[in-house]
Design a protein around this nucleic acid. Structure first.
Length: 565
RNA sequence: UGGGGUGUCGUCAAGUGGCAAGACACGGGGUUUUGGACCCCGCAUUCGGAGGUUCGAAUCCUCCCACCCCAGCCA
């Protein structure tokens, strides 16, 4: 009910800042994606953190597109990112910003830096700059252009902007310290020439600010109080602070770093995700197996479950890999409460009730949720011929197998007790083609008047009165928990660990007739099987298609697995 | 062989000198018309290691070890 307040180290810092009246009682965060790719569950962690903090402290959270490198950025990504953030459940109202809107202001800031002697135009080639940078253990060498006069740098910078030079001819560099043990402080590049049109500013600019210059100033311009980013930017913090200090901006946001999210059995890097898409190992960025928000949405994951997950994993500075099972737990937990139940047979086995009249049908009332009567009920047709799950019948059943077997009785959920009398096999293949049973008319509704018990209740569907459907069964994308690390160890491509069984398509599934009207995107629990979602893309009026979101916990499968080992 | 970080249960993660929260996973039991859900119970004498300070240390000090990040005109 009342969830305990989050007390991660960032909130502790913010609470202290508030007590000290550090930003006159204001809390302002931002989520700053670069519009050059899709958002994934790792971004969701950052989104929940930034928007969550804003909500907790009655502050604000800006959505800012960090679009300072036009190559690869596009409005399509902007739109996709906005859709994803909204879907996750966050609203930024009019606080939508673009670093590209600050280009002129940033340029003016750069001018100030040059005038103050804190930045200069360097005309070394990229290779030369790298050579001058030194190494991790040796200091760098100063650029021969380092002492260029402010006037000359100003002139060159203006001409860079005017397009007089080719890409790479000059860059603007901060004048800091070529001997700094922090390589980011060895006169970092602040602006580069890139004669590439920008998706928002067109050909207005041919010089673009680097991340380190644009990000801190964008934060300052927006009055951000706490600038949250991932651990790999820790080394950039001194530069973040240097720029803001040198430019005496009216506001100096505090950069705080936290560990990015890693999830077992998947990958999170943009490069690897792009590889999966590029090599056709998945159908695209929104393939239901992808850890992208678009993929999870299509798979049927709920925004609620993802938000809960982001809360549960916490925020800290440890490099960590969160168990995929926790995400699945959050999904099940949400769906268990909210998804209506339905019966579906994925791998049908024909059952004939010999003592049930061939021309008879009747209807059983089935609650849509066994624990929540408020969700109502629906009618399910019953007839002489049914389908049950192949897994629910075993000819030579061990004692621990509770389901149907020759001579054994089980309950058909909400219907009757049936007893297996005969197994019919294909004479050539030996494959079981159908089984014959008898039913006990006294057990209507699934209760035996003599109070006798059955060990199992199985799901079923009427053979003549059911709906055909296709079902896509998804499983973890990789066979190993940490594909990146595993590949490095083995000296192979991470794609070598893609799970060949991550997608299984079942085409002749039988689902209860009411599901014919299921709306795209709607989610159900198929009893005893898992949670499924009507595919919002490929499902249509004449071909019903379900994605498996996640299985139910399956202790029977677990027992078998253990026995097998 | 520089600098910046991090090391607490299988996995996340609280804890900030007073005697190891919680969650997932796992194991056991109850209940059950989903081998589901739900409900109990169990699960780190120990906090990367070794010393030291202290009545008392995961928390303080010293040394050591492991892992991550940084040498893009990417973010």
């Amino acid at each position: 009910m009342a969830k305990p307040p989050s007390t991660d180290f960032i909130r502790v810092i913010i609470t202290k800042d508030l007590q000290a009246n550090k930003h006159d009682g204001r809390v302002a965060t931002r989520f700053p994606p670069e519009p050059n790719g899709y958002l994934h569950i790792g971004h969701a962690k950052s989104i929940c953190l930034n928007f969550g903090i804003a909500a907790d402290y009655k502050g604000t959270c800006n959505l800012r597109f960090d679009d300072t490198d036009p190559s690869g950025e596009s409005i399509e990504y902007v739109d996709a990112i906005k859709a994803d953030v909204r879907w996750l459940g966050f609203e930024w109202n009019d606080r939508e910003f673009f670093a590209s809107d600050y280009f002129e202001q940033l340029y003016q800031y750069a001018l100030q830096l040059i005038k103050a002697g804190k930045a200069y135009i360097c005309s070394l080639s990229p290779d030369e700059i790298r050579e001058h940078r030194g190494t991790l253990t040796e200091p760098g060498k100063e650029s021969p252009y380092r002492n260029r006069s402010a006037e000359e740098s100003l002139d060159l910078f203006e001409r860079m902007r005017a397009g007089e030079f080719a890409d790479g001819a000059h860059v603007l560099r901060a004048r800091i310290d070529m001997a700094s043990p922090n390589l980011n402080m060895r006169d970092p590049v602040l602006y580069r020439i890139k004669k590439v049109p920008h998706y928002r500013t067109g050909d207005q600019w041919c010089i673009y600010p680097m991340y380190d210059f644009a990000h801190c100033l964008s934060d300052a311009i927006e009055g951000i109080t706490h600038s949250l980013c991932t651990l790999e930017f820790e080394n950039n913090r001194p530069l973040y602070d240097w720029i803001l200090d040198e430019l005496k901006t009216p506001c100096h946001p505090q950069q705080i770093e936290f560990a990015r999210l890693n999830l077992s059995y998947t990958v999170m890097s943009k490069r690897m995700l792009a590889d999966l898409v590029g090599k056709g190992l998945v159908s695209g960025w929104s393939d239901p197996r992808m850890p992208t928000l678009a993929g999870m949405r299509r798979r049927g994951y709920t925004p609620d479950a993802i938000r809960t997950f982001c809360e549960r994993i916490g925020v800290a500075k440890n490099d960590s890999v969160v168990d995929m099972e926790l995400l699945e737990h959050c999904v099940r937990d949400d769906l268990n409460e909210h998804a209506p139940r339905a019966m579906a047979v994925l791998r049908p086995l024909k059952v004939i009730i010999d003592n049930y009249p061939a021309d008879k049908t009747e209807e059983f009332d089935a609650p849509n949720h066994p624990q929540d009567p408020g969700m109502g009920s629906r009618k399910i047709p019953f007839s002489r011929e049914l389908y049950i799950e192949q897994d629910d019948f075993l000819e030579d059943a061990p004692k621990k197998f509770f389901r149907l077997a020759p001579g054994r009785e089980v309950r058909l959920r909400y219907a009757y007790f049936i007893k297996c009398e005969q197994v019919i096999k294909d004479k050539k293949t030996g494959e079981i083609t159908e089984i014959h049973c008898t039913y006990d008319p006294e057990t209507r509704g699934g209760y035996a008047p003599d109070n006798r018990k059955v060990k199992a209740t199985i799901h079923w569907v009427s053979a003549p009165l059911c709906q055909e459907a296709e079902v896509r069964l998804y499983d973890r994308l990789f066979t190993v928990a940490n594909p990146g690390a595993e590949a490095e160890k083995a000296g192979t491509e991470f794609t070598a660990f893609v799970n060949p069984d991550s997608l299984e398509t079942l085409t002749s599934c039988k689902v209860e007739p009411g599901l014919a009207q299921a709306a795209p995107g709607s989610r159900y629990q198929f009893e005893r099987l898992g949670y499924f979602c009507v595919d919002p893309v490929d499902s249509s009026e004449d071909s019903l298609l379900f994605n498996r979101i996640v299985t139910l916990r399956d202790t029977w499968a677990k027992m078998q697995e253990k026995d097998g080992k």
